[in-house]
């Protein structure tokens, strides 16, 4: 299993987090850790997520990018430690 850290920028809209979780699970990725914060100034959420899968990460990036409320998805090449959660 390969591990990747994604940085997702999204409009802070209804259920945007649920949409990301649903797509991530359905496309065959496990979430190892995640953190989500909203900038209340511009209503943009930043979601940092560590995922693992045997599948290429481009598959997940393309599918998350298709979600209407997503502004940007990037793989963080230099993963730093992020808070653990039980997602």
């Amino acid at each position: 299993m390969n591990k990747y850290q994604l940085v997702i920028m999204a409009d802070d809209k209804q259920v945007v987090l649920e949409r990301i979780l649903q797509v991530t699970r359905y496309r065959g990725f496990l979430i190892n850790a995640m953190n989500a914060e909203v900038n209340t100034g511009n209503n943009v959420a930043t979601i940092t997520m560590t995922v693992s899968s045997d599948r290429p990460i481009s598959l997940l990036i393309d599918q998350i990018n298709k979600l209407i409320d997503i502004k940007d998805v990037k793989v963080d090449a230099s993963p730093t430690k992020i808070p653990q959660c039980s997602a």
Partner: peptide, 14 residues
């Protein structure tokens, strides 16, 4: 239905 719609629509609103 909003939650149920996530996997079977392109997008959804409540």
């Amino acid at each position: 239905i909003f939650g149920l719609s996530l996997a079977c629509t392109k997008h959804s609103f409540q």
